[in-house]
């Protein structure tokens, strides 16, 4: 109702919950491990589904509203499904002055992302900006699924994106 981002739920399947149970067991159901647990859950589902957050809260004896509060406090957590390829474009000071925004614009145009949308409809790509990856010597820098792409230009990033698109056979 008053949430800025809509939340989505997953279909309840026992496989999903047993995966979450394993994560919870590893972190001993501790409230102090909530952020780490949310990170693992997000790594698995690519986002934090609402019913999974409810499940976590119930299992950990933390109220679901509190889990939701933590999940919405940190921008690293997403309540919406993310794409298969997560394109992180650094917009720290160094990257910014060396032209990260033209790189960002080129990606957004190529993927036809407008109106506050950051994930493509086919679910392949998500685009986000991050504030300084600590690799200022490589500015402007992008990271796609943990792989670092240094000294980007609009042309270079388009070539990389096109490669991924071709690999997927779209």
């Amino acid at each position: 109702m008053t949430t800025p981002s809509s939340t989505e739920s997953l279909n309840v399947s026992s496989a999903n919950y047993s995966k979450v149970d394993k994560i919870l067991e590893r972190f001993e159901y501790k409230k102090s491990n909530l952020i780490a647990i949310l990170q693992e859950v997000q790594a698995h589902f690519k986002f934090l589904p609402e019913n999974i957050m409810t499940y976590l809260g119930t299992k950990m004896a933390v109220s679901p509203a509190t889990v939701f509060g933590v999940a919405t406090f940190y921008s690293q957590f997403s309540l919406e499904p993310k794409g298969k390829y997560i394109v992180k474009i650094c917009d720290g000071t160094a990257c910014h002055v060396r032209g990260s925004m033209p790189v960002y614009d080129a990606v957004m145009n190529r993927l036809k992302l407008t109106d506050g949308k950051f994930t493509t409809e086919d679910g392949l790509f998500s685009v986000e900006t991050v504030s300084c990856l600590g690799a200022c010597g490589l500015a402007p820098v992008c990271v796609i699924n943990e792989k670092i792409y240094p000294k980007m230009t609009p042309d270079a990033i388009l070539a990389i994106i096109n490669n991924f698109v071709n690999d997927e056979g779209v």
Binding site: S63, A65, F68, Y74
Partner: peptide, 27 residues
């Protein structure tokens, strides 16, 4: 809600100027 009822139906969500107090997911 938390200290009396152990329930915390209400919680903080979001951050900074966007912070709100609401039940889970704004329900």
């Amino acid at each position: 809600c938390e200290e009396f009822q152990g329930h915390a139906v209400l919680g903080f969500a979001n951050r900074g100027s966007k912070t709100v107090v609401q039940p889970l997911a704004g329900k």
